[in-house]
Design a protein around this nucleic acid. Structure first.
Length: 871
RNA sequence: GGGCUCUUAGCUCAGCUGGUUCAGAGCACCUGCCUUACAAGCAGGGGGUCACUGGUUCGAAUCCAGUAGGGCCCACCA
């Protein structure tokens, strides 16, 4: 066996074997409790990034543990069609080929898009396999495959029928580059340097002028009012009068509205209802005309009357110049303000009135609100409950139409007169249409061009992956739904999680999942979010090659409590890899031993008793961590159990002298411990644990750790652990003395113990002798002279080393100890002499304090005695 | 601007309803070791006024208020 562990071949070997054995596959089994996770479907054309790595590692940990616990574990993988992102990629790809989207038909475009999807789709799933993800790949779904599309359309028609879907003119975030509306969530506000133009408007039939501050002078063309605060004394006399809009020379009213901030700019606001959300609302309140001055590509429209066809930013400069020439610019100030950008195309978002499809959210989201508030569905960590509540209490209607081609086309069909019908298929639509307008033909029905927002399909994911919409009573949905845990990023709490909860209650009358584990964002050491643009994100596959999947999995989980950002550093993977190696070497040690049928030595008996108790203690800790979704803590407990308790203590205790055999009972006990450790480790490090499992002994083909039984918590004797701790402390003290006095570890020492409870040390006497490198242990009644001493709790220890003692040093050590203990006693006495403490504190606390006092007093007495001997 | 949340060792974080499991873990650091499982290691060790200021209490990292500084979400100011 190699001195260092080589993960590469091992990992590929076992993943193939697991697949071959169908260990990931799941089907409904009434005998077993289901445990289900649906993957947050990554973009179909995406590639694996560090966020996915973290996310899917956590899911794999949970699913593997559940599988070992005997549950029917089912992890459903799949991909999302990601309408805007994918369409943008395809458009770009076509452009590189010299094809413009506007020059080809919808059908042609979709052909290209599907080709693209076939080529790149699913790469990400292949990458997940390298990570070790134990998804049931037979169940892989795609949000735009026929059955899932059917579900989306069915839901649309259903919601329409229930009156939850409406079509309306609304102010939307318009992406002029993507030429589509985007949701509020897809707008990113960035601080930019812009100019604040102070523009003079002439008052009609008056010689007065009004000055108005604006950052977007091109919108002047769409102004239909000027607004002041009703309490603003400066402008009282102007309310009700008219002003003349520069350039277009249109007369508009001066109105008053509370919205206007008297402090900002001139306290006077121009109103452009077509291109500003607040202006739009003010417009509604005051019945203002709406003039849409923009085309869908961000150029000025006919309605603007001027600069037609020119881009809005060019017009901004031109207008500024033209106004300057007319003397209507008072001044220009620099201003930092926030401007919305499209998440997908990075174009500046323009608020724009357009006709869109909406889902009414208020009523439909009620159960989703309540069931998170009452903890039927638990968010982990719980701090996200507040965020969730805030959003749900202010939930706005959901704009679900997108002016794209890649996606689910809205099943609305327009009649020649502009009215429309909604139906699942063209045929049904025709039938309905004919009832309204007899004689209408299929050709006269035109389907809506828009497609649905991506989230309008993924919000059904936990149901639709089991075909629960199209076949609401099938075996899978009945068995697997509701799912158990959802692991995802907090950024999509509203986009996705909240909406899945809403659809879950609407379509299954049941929550989609019990727990939502929100991961952090993966950042670099400087706390910058990892992104392609910054180039600070390592390639996950390179990392896997370098450290092994097990190494990365643990590296990421060492430090990522739920909801906390993960500050990723390759060093963490190094730690993971080193851990693999440690395990590997422990295995090598154990495998090298020869067995001999002989009686088990005292030291081995003691060791086995101790480790058995210790294992069960830590296992209980681990289970507690899992129950609170403290995945990092669970891993850390396992790490320390393997490294410190098992390797550094236990194996050292039982390790035979060089080339000496070990007795059979001890070896067998040790192998069982090793197996148990590997089982507990398996969810985190699936590959090495499987490899070790098979190295421990020859096994049947189906006897794999992935499907072995997870250890159950057993009771343990806490007293044994306390005793062992005292013995370990003693050993550490002895080693420390050896260090200080430069005594080699092979030089036997004599130890004298002055204690009121010798049993503690007698129970582990053989261990103490072996690891302390002692020749004898004497229990004494009095202080030992000419000895190096140390104290553990109330017990005193002496190592007679007459020739090695520096009396001054010993005295100093004792003095320090004395001083500390006296101070400690002092504080305890203070507490105990405080009547209010004795009267108010619980009895238990007082008893403990009294015990502390006696212990300290005893300790002081013996330190003093030792000092006296030194003098 | 509104809401939420955080500040503990050099770094990342634990510390549940106030009291010996109360100042902890991992990493990093320092010292000594190439000791036949492992230098990707072993043994040992040093690091913290628990952001600041008050208050409640017999007792505060823990509860309350204020201050300073982070973070997240929502809204977006012309």
């Amino acid at each position: 066996m190699n001195k260092t562990y080589n993960p590469l071949e091992v990992e590929d070997k076992w993943y193939e074997y697991w697949m071959e054995k169908q260990f990931f596959a799941s089907k409904p089994n009434p005998e077993k409790e289901p445990y289900t996770i649906v993957i947050p479907p990554p973009n179909v054309t995406g590639v694996l990034h560090m966020g996915h790595m973290l996310n899917n590692t956590i899911q794999d940990v949970l699913i593997r543990r559940a599988r070992m616990q005997g549950k029917e574990a089912c992890w459903v993988p799949g991909t999302d069609h990601a309408s805007i992102a994918t369409e943008a990629k395809v458009v770009k790809m076509l452009k590189e080929k010299g094809i413009e989207k506007r020059d080809i038909s919808r059908e042609e475009f979709l052909k290209y898009a599907w080709e693209w999807k076939e080529k790149y789709g699913g790469i990400i799933l292949e990458q997940l396999k390298k990570l070790g993800a134990s998804c049931d790949w037979n169940r892989t779904r795609f949000t735009m495959e026929p059955e899932m599309s059917k579900a989306v359309i069915k839901v649309f028609v259903d919601l329409y029928g229930k009156g939850y879907i409406y079509r309306g003119a609304r102010m939307v975030n318009w992406d002029p580059q993507g030429k589509t509306a985007v949701s509020d969530e897809e707008v990113i506000y960035k601080e930019v340097q812009s100019k604040l133009y102070y523009v003079k408007y002439k008052i009609k039939d008056d010689n007065e002028w009004l000055t108005i501050a604006t950052t977007r002078p091109e919108t002047i063309l769409g102004d239909t009012a000027v607004c002041v605060n009703p309490n603003d004394e400066r402008y009282q006399h102007l309310i009700g009068k008219k002003v003349i809009i520069p350039i277009v020379e249109r007369e508009v009213p001066i109105i008053a509205d509370d919205y206007v901030d008297m402090e900002f700019g001139t306290g006077c606001l121009k109103i452009t209802p077509a291109h500003d959300l607040n202006d739009y609302e003010i417009g509604l309140r005051h019945n203002l005309e709406i003039i849409d001055t923009l085309n869908e590509d961000g150029t000025l429209s006919e309605a603007a009357g001027h600069y037609i066809g020119e881009d809005r930013f060019i017009v901004r400069k031109k207008i500024a110049k033209d106004l300057q020439e007319k003397g209507q610019i008072v001044k220009v100030e620099e201003l930092t303000n926030k401007v919305g950008f499209s998440e997908r195309t990075d174009a500046v978002i323009e608020p724009r009135i357009s006709t869109q499809w909406f889902i009414k959210m208020k009523e439909i989201s009620k159960p989703a609100y309540e069931n998170v508030m009452n903890d039927n569905i638990q968010l982990v960590p719980p701090k996200f409950k507040n965020t969730y509540r805030h959003w749900m209490e202010n939930v706005k209607d959901w704009c679900i139409s997108r002016q794209l081609w890649w996606g689910h086309r809205i099943p609305a069909y327009y009649l020649p007169d502009g009215s429309y019908v909604v139906a699942e298929t063209q045929e049904e639509a025709l039938k309905i249409a004919q009832e309204i307008q007899p004689g209408i033909t299929a050709k006269q029905l035109v389907q809506e061009e828009d497609v649905l927002d991506t989230w309008a399909s993924s919000w059904l994911w936990p149901i639709s992956v089991f075909d629960g919409i199209t076949k609401p009573n099938n075996e899978d949905i009945n068995y697997y739904y509701p799912t158990n845990d959802l692991v995802t990023a907090p950024e999509i709490l509203f986009f996705w999680v909240a909406r899945m909860i809403i659809s879950g209650y609407e379509y299954r009358q049941e929550m989609p999942f019990k727990n939502v584990y929100l991961t952090g964002i993966v950042r670099d050491k400087q706390r910058r979010k990892m992104s392609k643009q910054l180039g600070n994100s390592p390639d996950p596959l390179d990392l896997i090659k370098k450290y092994g999947a097990d190494g990365i999995r643990t590296g990421m989980l060492f430090s990522s409590p739920a909801g906390n950002d993960l500050l990723f550093d390759e060093k963490l993977c190094l730690q993971g890899r080193n851990f693999s190696n440690k395990i590997w070497n422990a295995l090598r040690l154990v495998k090298e031993w020869n067995v001999k049928d002989e009686a088990t030595s005292e030291v081995n008996k003691e060791s086995i008793v101790w480790f058995d108790a210790r294992f069960n203690q830590v296992l209980a800790e681990i289970e507690d961590h899992y129950s609170k979704f403290r995945i990092s803590d669970a891993l850390m407990s396992i790490y320390k159990l393997c490294w410190n308790d098992f390797s550094n203590w236990y194996l050292e205790m039982i390790k035979p002298a060089y080339q000496q055999p070990i007795d059979r009972a001890t070896l067998e006990a040790t192998l069982i411990f090793f197996e148990k450790l590997m089982k507990v480790l398996h969810p985190f490090m699936p590959f090495i644990s499987e490899e070790v499992w098979h190295q421990i002994k020859e096994r049947e083909a189906d006897d794999c750790i992935i499907v072995s039984n997870y250890p159950t918590t057993e009771t343990f004797d806490e007293n044994i652990l306390l005793e062992a701790e005292a013995v370990f402390e003693t050993i550490i003290n002895i080693r420390n003395i050896r260090n200080q006095k430069q005594i080699g570890k092979n030089e036997p020492l004599e130890l004298c113990i002055k204690t009121s409870s010798p049993k503690v040390y007698k129970d582990f006497e053989a261990v103490l002798l072996k690891l302390g490198g002692l020749s004898t242990i004497n229990f004494v009644e009095n202080v030992v002279e000419d000895a190096v001493s140390f104290v553990y709790k109330a017990d005193e220890f002496y190592i007679p080393l007459a020739d090695q003692i520096d009396p001054e040093q010993e005295r100093q050590k004792l003095q320090n100890e004395l001083q500390y203990t006296e101070g400690f006693l002092n504080s305890v006495n203070k507490k105990l002499s405080n009547e209010r403490f004795v009267n108010n504190a619980p009895e238990k606390v007082v008893t403990i304090e009294k015990q502390k006092r006696t212990d300290a007093e005893n300790k002081i007495a013996s330190i003093k005695a030792a000092l006296a001997k030194l003098n």
